[in-house]
Design a binder for these strands. Structure first.
Lengths: 336, 336
DNA sequence: CGTGAGTGAGAAACCCTTTTCTCAAGGCAA
DNA sequence: TTGCCTTGAGAAAAGGGTTTCTCACTCACG
């Protein structure tokens, strides 16, 4: 099986000796550089394969000044957003032979500094900062590191590359979907006003209604918490009045879940009487709702992948457009 | 433009030259090895500090055969369990100067192999495997890697170190709490029977009742899905009969949430008439439930930390007890 | 004064790979 | 035959540290 060389690692000296050549020749044969007869090259390669030779990245990095590692900093240990982003980064970079150092720093500046120093000592080629909120920075200053930095789903300086989902476009898609379903009285039930995403989504909601010549009022946007309970409460408040909506765009899936449940308790048919659209495509919520939620997916894994690729371009010295990159969201149409 | 690596790194040669000594002496001064006058040692150290010298880990690893990195493999990109475990690992290891390579492998054996090979090439000192289910292994064989492996929250071979929460003890604590609240008719509403944790918790539930001389029947354990909906359904079924419980131990917090909501809809007082205990301490669920859920915390971050420390001991060649390590759970008492 | 022990520090080897420079040999034109 | 060019390959250095070995020197003792 694999991994038989458990004791002594095979080095390029072993390959060279077995092939009766120098390490220089062996190196060149394996890296497809230098000049030599194709017989020699093939023979060395065959022997390397037979011996199970795997070059020591550390030694290679020492001369190449490239470690093929990057550091990933996050302040999120529980959230559901970070993991897909990290998975995307890891997946996008492994294709380039790059491995990712995971560093969780909570909100602890000293811990963050320790991690950053450890990363730098290990000669990372670059750093990705990621977090739980796009309007809060990590507890450590990364702007004058000796390596490039990319920000994903966390606040970064204006002159850096920062990747976030395009909340406006996602919200627009959601509201347009409601309009396309023939809904005309559309409200927006969303989270706390001190989140930037709440502003973005609410603004896009209002603009989309306006563009469709539908009535839009400040009262159409209800701010609360990111919870099912708030969904319940908002429906209770709306149904207590006369001007009941026939379409509801929710700021996240939990609110939408609460909304759908509250409507069902009131015998209001979803989507017969009211259409509901959520945000996040948190599958455990969206798919379990009855009916399953139509919702906006932020494509976080893809966002992570793009962040990784952007960093690679910076590391390679290629030109990369600075500033905020807004990545498209996708509407996932289910039953609501 | 910052971060174009324009800075020249300070090497030990620079320090040695500035101090007028050889690199050997500089190395020994900085590592507190070898023999020299304390004036020399202090002077070299001071100069190193002034120059901002930071040793290149790569070069150091090349000779020391220790890279102070470990690989972390996970098959979970969405779950809520993995992130705290990873955070604990990262936190526990950074104290040892060890950084963690994050590798997400989904259920893809080839991807997993690529990641493992990349890790090995980068000379990781060890590997930690973690996942979403303690009864499913990762899609890659790790048992004859040339470095030690520790398993956390995923299935590992019998002869390895595997860390999992002590589900039995946690379940026992939950049921004992219900009994201490004066509850006597206690049922268990839990997840699908093909999860090992379902068996463990159900068994501990039954044993604890038995030990307290309370009635225990197979009908007292209701298996369903890990969803709020199932909590609702189970309550509906129970309250349709005559033998209604006064204590409910739920297999996870989502079920408990559904149970509490269903009870409230039925005007059953929690905890006035019925006490409910969940499992997981998923704060976003447990704290939002009305009343807030009393639940079992699996201390996943601590589990991760222990996994990291166990790996370090293996790497250092210290004796480590093999087999399944069951780490204690903690009952978090809230309002239910 | 000769001897031995202890001390402080440097030279050199080593870790593993890449890369530059050098060189011998052979082919070919003059 | 001489001289130049090409080709294939190796010697050596580099990369940034650590570690072993050696050595010169001082001091105390007999």
């Amino acid at each position: 099986m694999s991994g038989q060389g458990a004791f002594e690692r095979v080095t390029i000296y072993d390959v060279a000796a077995a092939a009766g050549v120098s390490t220089a020749t062996a190196s060149k044969a394996l890296n497809d550089t230098g000049r030599m007869s194709s017989e020699t090259r093939d023979r060395i390669r065959r022997i390397a394969r037979e011996l199970g030779f795997r070059p020591n990245s550390l030694a290679r990095s020492l001369t190449s000044k490239r470690s093929f590692t990057v550091g990933l900093l996050t302040d999120d240990t529980y959230g559901r957003f970070t993991l897909p982003v990290m998975a995307g980064i890891s997946e996008g970079l492994i294709d380039h032979g790059v491995s990712v150092f995971l560093c969780t720093v909570e909100d602890n500046p000293e811990l963050a500094k320790v991690h950053v120093d450890a990363m730098l000592d290990k000669q990372v080629d670059g750093v990705i900062a990621t977090g739980k909120r796009i309007d809060k920075p990590l507890p450590v200053e990364l702007s004058h590191l000796p390596v490039p930095v990319v920000y994903a789903l966390t606040a970064g300086p204006a002159e850096a590359v920062t990747l976030v989902p395009d909340d406006r476009q996602g919200a627009r898609a959601a509201v347009q979907h409601l309009i396309a379903q023939g809904r005309r009285r559309i409200v927006h039930i969303t989270g706390p006003g001190n989140f930037r995403v709440v502003h973005e989504r609410a603004r896009a909601y209002a603009e989309t209604l306006e563009a469709a010549h539908l009535p839009v009022s400040e009262a159409g946007t209800l701010r609360g918490s990111w919870s099912e309970r708030w969904g319940h409460e908002a429906v209770a408040a709306l149904w207590a009045g006369d001007d009941r909506p026939d379409g509801i765009f929710c700021g996240n899936d939990q609110i939408a879940r609460g909304v759908v449940d509250a409507l069902r308790e009131r015998q209001v048919g979803v989507p017969r009487d009211v259409s509901v659209v959520g945000f996040d495509n948190w599958e455990i919520v969206a798919e379990q709702t009855r009916p399953p939620l139509t919702t906006v997916d932020m494509n976080l894994k893809e966002l992570g992948r793009q962040a990784g690729l952007a960093l690679m371009r910076l590391v390679n010295g290629e030109a990369v457009e600075k500033g905020l990159w807004k990545l498209p969201c996708t509407l996932v149409v289910r039953g609501s």
